[in-house]
Nucleic acid binder design. Structure first.
Lengths: 205, 205, 205, 205
DNA sequence: GATGAATGAGTTTTCATTCAT
DNA sequence: CATGAATGAAAACTCATTCAT
């Protein structure tokens, strides 16, 4: 029998609660009790669905990673290769990417992936996969721009990595990997600087 | 009365054990029991010295951060502004920096700072301070090189940040922020690529 | 949902065990472990029901005080105002009261109320309330006797207090406030003496 | 060699601190650390003098009991058998007795004797001895008064016990056995009432 | 003999996990 | 299947007591 829609809703409620609680408190300090309470279900229901706490963590990170990745892809697909002002377009998309990274769910995922690897080796491939997918997507767009003759890119994938590194490193560090919310201009400035350097390296004239 | 040398040795042994255990397991999963055992002291001795588990974490991160910072500074001071092969010199120093970051103590510090901020807001200033000191030191060296006319740097501090971002981002991500030991060529390649882009942006001719 | 009968039984078992253990060892030396073992439940069950050790103490004293008070009231209601031999009747009831005070539960309550007031200020009103209720009930009975013309009582409440003081002081002191079990004649004699003095003061020739 | 005077002073300082701390917190909750700190000595000094915590309790109760007993005897020796107003004299002395009982040291002793008997069976004889000495002393005085024809006392010891019971029961109960300080009129009234009844029973018309 | 530091043993409390309903 | 209550295992922390100086 296929799962009913209330079952799916319940499952999603648990996953959302888990991401929030795990992200805020970390795996060890998160209580299954509180996750169940937030999801509006009883504790054994959580266990029925996910086996144990570790399984819940794994599944909730998978779930949140997929959602985050979707938002990232949305942001990247908004990059217009023929935009009149290339510099402005790169800054806009870089800011959008950083917003995804620093959103509530984004930071929850990021921090859990960094801090809970000893609990879940399975996470690593997930994290790297997401990173690679993002890089590839960005590289594709940059390649199109290069094909238009507006960038000089011997290796679009490398360029994509470097663009991300240049623009996101500073905001990530400043925010404490998502622990603190950034003010808008704490993103705008570093992104402009990063794109500057990127264009100095890869720009045409 | 000033502390005797056994006192200091004991204290350092506890701190070293704490960094190792906290770094490997995270704050919550680390047991004071095990830290004491590794340090070769009884549990109450740990409490006598550091008050409680939280105080021990704080102090051990302070201690390890200071040691790591010293090693980083040592690496940077090795940058020779008049080296014949500038590209090679930048690569060498970048690799040295990354080795510091990915050393046992370095990764312990990094992962704790990322994952335990909800336990210790005090950590944030420490982390940012260390980062800034490193950036400033590197910026100073780069400025000298620029003064020799071998780099074109409108803003040495920004250049320092970008050099670090370009060279270290990939190795950090690949290693899972220190969870996995990297093979030498997992560092060499990305560093070369990073320095390439850096020189494309800031190099002279 | 109303508690099932096993719930109540379990709760009462814990309370009875707690009164016994607290009474014998005092609050600090009593172990929740032993209370749980005696009650035939697991330790966390105790915590689920009563929150913490302090809450368990409070609740168990409330419970035991109520039970003791019930027994005291039973004893007092047995005082027959028209008994042929008034002296014998007063002695009988006084002995019954003292038996309540020196019963296992009675002494547990008494000693905890004396010794653990720094843990539980709430206890004080409980103790005084129980004392007052007893005094009032006894006063009521004495007043009836006085109305029959067999005692001369300007103030029945005062007389009740004095009767209790005269008969119970010595046995309480001798027993070490319940620490030692008394032989029957260690109660009989002092009670007779106390009633003697009481009647010398309030008797009608 | 006889102990030097500083040794005696130190010893007394420890005992005084012990009585205060034990009396306020009870045996189990009292810390040897705090006793040592209050006495201005190091912890091992306490152990050198008294062996262990139990020994310190025992010795400090002995010491405080002796001091309290001295004060009680002083109060009783002030009873003037030929005072013009016998009622006033009995009230005065009864109040003095109660003041001894409810003084800081007095309540400390009383509460420890009640609550720590499972720690120290030796205490019992001490307590009973002190009680008996007090009763005997009071009985002696009452006997003199009776010899003067101002009281009719078949058994002076019994009368002494009853006078103490009648006057001190209520204040002791009200004060929670010394937990709460009484207002003066919380002593005066009950004492007057107690002496009233005493004289009604034993007075000469 | 007095002290500062160290320790061994024990206690309260918590929490992931599982029955019984 | 969902729930309320129960449990086993573990971990932080404390404290009486003892060395080394």
């Amino acid at each position: 029998m296929s799962p009913t829609s209330t079952q799916v809703a319940r499952r999603d409620a648990i996953l959302a609660a888990a991401v929030a609680v795990f992200g805020a408190a970390g795996f060890a300090d998160a209580g299954v009790d509180e996750i169940a309470r937030r999801a509006g279900v009883a504790k054994p229901t959580v266990y029925n669905h996910f086996g144990d706490k570790r399984g819940l963590l794994l599944e909730s990170i998978r779930w949140a990673t997929a959602r985050a990745q979707q938002r990232v892809m949305g942001a990247l697909s908004g990059l217009d290769p023929s935009a009149a002002d290339l510099r402005a377009e790169l800054e806009r998309v870089s800011r959008a990417l950083i917003e995804c990274l620093l959103s509530d769910e984004g930071t929850a995922v990021m921090r859990l992936q960094v801090s809970e690897q000893h609990h879940l080796a399975e996470l690593d491939s997930l994290r790297l996969g997401a990173r690679q997918a993002t890089v590839e997507a960005l590289a594709g767009r940059l390649a199109i721009i290069a094909a238009h003759g507006r960038l000089r890119l011997p290796d679009p994938v490398l360029a994509a990595r470097h663009l991300m590194a240049l623009t996101s490193d500073e905001p990530l560090a400043e925010s404490g990997f998502g622990a603190r919310r950034l003010q808008p201009d704490e993103v705008v400035g570093p992104v402009r600087d990063g794109v500057d350097t990127f264009l100095a390296a890869f720009g045409v004239d």
